[in-house]
Simulated assay, not measured.
Amino acid sequence: MVDRPNKPSALSSTPGLNPQAQVSISHGSSRVTAVLPTGQSVEVHLYGATVLSWKDSRGQEQLWLSETTKLDGSKAIRGGIPLVFPVFGPSPPDHPATAQLPQHGFARTSRWEFLGKSTSESSEVFQSSRGQSSAEVATADLSVKLDFGLSSGNLEPEVRKLWPHAFGLIYSVTLGCNSLSTSLVVTNEDDKPFDFQVLFHTYFGISDINKTEIAGLDKAEYLDKTEGYAAKTQSANVSFTRETDRVYTPVGGPREPVSIVESGKKRFDVVRDNLGDVVVWNPWQDKAAGMADFGPDDGYKKMVCVEAGSVRGWQVLEPGDAFECAQTIVPQ
């Protein structure tokens, strides 16, 4: 990788024990792939630090990626887990600080640095083998964390003019045998405060949107973007019969899981850390057909976005302070 000045430092890591995860860099140093000894894998594109793929031990893909999305750095990637920062959607007209930025900000369209990997194992390996050898337990509890960095000094000059704040971002993608976690640390390196929004725009792969529901949002207030941001309250699970684009504030708090349910059975739990909002999105037939980077046209039947974020208001970060947030996805 090319070393650049002013890049953020990697987060502290925990030295791993054997067996080790395998990490490789490919596609002209634009993608980082990690594979656990048990077969789970994750692939991250340095354009946007976008997670492209997350597979279980059987090689089954958990995310949805558009067949027609660009992967050459010319346009934001449609699918996987794009990172939204410092503004969600188009900038509100009454918020001049982000008024000139493109939709969803610049994090998903900037070239990030790969800062390195670290591995860890559960302390269970030192406490009890439960009838297994230490090697077996260690393999079962092994995880690998990939760190990526973006700073104001690494932004393209035209982007820096649109958002002239000194900042540092550390984005970590942690692959476990039974989970995938994404976390972000935002540091204000400026001499004045700035505000921002952040969101993990996760595209989940599903079998049939007509048989899919989102649980954990009952009684939650939400803004319906398909009806001019009308304020409503959810009753029962969320189901899909048309275009859905809603910003929820779950009543149970970030630690209460929001679940994707297919044919009455849970597929995924999403747990948030320091993120108060959840966006639920499916473009449905007409909108999907009108997006050139959404393919195939009927791909909306095989995906649903459940997006952990802080987007209904603005996080204000004082000089020298840091903001941390995360989501953990657990297949069921």
Results as ranks from 00 to 15, higher is better:
G313V: 05
V304D: 04
V306D: 00
D286P: 03
K302A: 08
V316T: 08
M303S: 03
C305W: 01
N282A: 09
F294R: 02
A308G: 14
E318D: 01
G309L: 13
V304H: 02
W314Y: 11
G309F: 11
P283N: 03
R312F: 10
G313Q: 11
R312Y: 06
E307I: 02
W281L: 10
V304F: 05
W284H: 07
A289V: 10
F294G: 01
A292S: 15
D298S: 04
L317K: 05
W281Q: 08
V279K: 11
Q285G: 03
A292H: 13
G295A: 10
L317C: 12
K287I: 14
V316G: 08
V311N: 00
A292F: 06
E307R: 00
D293P: 12
W314V: 09
S310M: 15
A288W: 08
E307P: 00
V279S: 05
L317P: 12
P296C: 04
N282D: 06
Y300Q: 06
G299A: 05
W284Q: 00
R312E: 12
G309I: 12
V316M: 09
E318I: 10
A289K: 10
K302W: 12
G290P: 01
Q285W: 10
A308R: 02
G309W: 10
R312M: 11
V311F: 00
